[in-house]
């Protein structure tokens, strides 16, 4: 457990160092699911996030329990109007307790590289908008032995974002064709089964009631439903409750992920997830 805290501390120092070099932040989207937001051409968005997960089983179907810390990094670059390239990179620390002993592993997770195209945009009011984007990505086997499924997995998806006054509504779907498997699957898509993710979100702007000239700090409540369905029959539905705070130069988010329903044979059942992140645009 001590190594987990050392890992977390190292990640925090890296995050603070990164934040000190970046000036401006972006953008309104839910914490745990994709949205149809893109940086403008020539701009980067960077979303570092800490994620903690607690499982009531050990990976690989063994008796026991597991905890996992991840330092997740999402970078997107606007290559042209309505087009963006993105990469997801994570560092993982996992503690597994089984009757046979404890195991603590750390390392790189697989990397996801992709392209996103916003194919529809209807800005129907000063702040009101409906946007839809399609994306294609490849999960690359860059992870360490315990955290990679050793093959290139393609996935494709679609996401929508609607802003209606103080309400933000998002929906997304992604299908991943899985051609390899980790030794001990933890997340949907880690095993040798295709993975369909369906997600819906609602953000409500708690304050301000209306924007004043010059911009204000905006505070949103977040509710997300996250469904994961695999072709091996495993299925899970999580609810995520959180808060997003946006100011003209920074954004911060936190989210608690709780299982609603789980029917899992190939991967461990989740007890709790916590996400804490920030967002930058530069």
């Amino acid at each position: 457990m001590q190594s987990s805290f050392q890992f977390l501390r190292a990640c925090a120092i890296g995050l603070i160092a990164a934040a000190s070099t970046i000036q401006v932040a972006a953008a309104q989207q839910p914490t745990n699911s994709p949205s149809a937001t893109l940086p403008g051409p020539g701009l980067f968005t960077y979303r570092p996030m800490f994620r903690f997960d607690k499982f009531s089983d050990a990976p690989g179907g063994a008796d026991g329990k597991a905890e996992r810390f991840r330092f997740m990094n999402h970078v997107m670059y606007g290559v042209a109007p309505e087009w963006g390239l993105f990469a997801d990179l994570s560092f993982v620390d996992r503690d597994v307790e089984t009757p046979g002993g404890d195991d603590d592993e750390s390392g790189l997770g697989d990397t996801r590289l992709g392209v996103s195209h916003r194919f529809y945009r209807n800005d129907f009011g000063p702040i009101e908008t409906f946007r839809a984007a399609a994306n294609f990505s490849l999960r690359m086997p860059t992870g360490d032995e315990e955290f990679t499924n050793d093959t290139v997995n393609p996935s494709f998806g679609i996401s929508t974002t609607t802003i209606l006054g103080r309400h933000g509504i998002g929906s997304s779907a992604r299908y991943e064709i899985t051609t390899g498997a980790t030794d001990s699957p933890v997340d949907a898509g880690d095993g040798l089964a295709d993975h369909l993710m369906l997600a819906g979100s609602h953000l409500y702007r708690i304050r301000p009631e209306s924007y004043a000239e010059g911009g204000n700090v905006a505070v949103y409540s977040q509710v997300e439903l996250l469904g994961h369905f695999e072709t091996n029959g495993d299925a899970s539905l999580d609810a995520a409750l959180g808060v997003l705070v946006e100011a003209p130069r920074w954004a911060a988010e936190c989210s608690v992920i709780l299982p609603v329903a789980q029917d899992l044979d190939e991967r461990p059942e989740s007890e709790l997830g916590l996400a804490l992140g920030v967002r930058f645009l530069f």
Binding site: V24, D123, T129, A247
Partner: peptide, 21 residues
């Protein structure tokens, strides 16, 4: 200029960055 779709403070910062060029 009247502009639609300025959905949040941070999204709108992207506009400032692009127009600044």
């Amino acid at each position: 200029a009247r502009v639609n779709g300025l959905s949040c403070p941070l999204c709108a910062e992207s506009l400032s960055a692009v127009m600044g060029r």
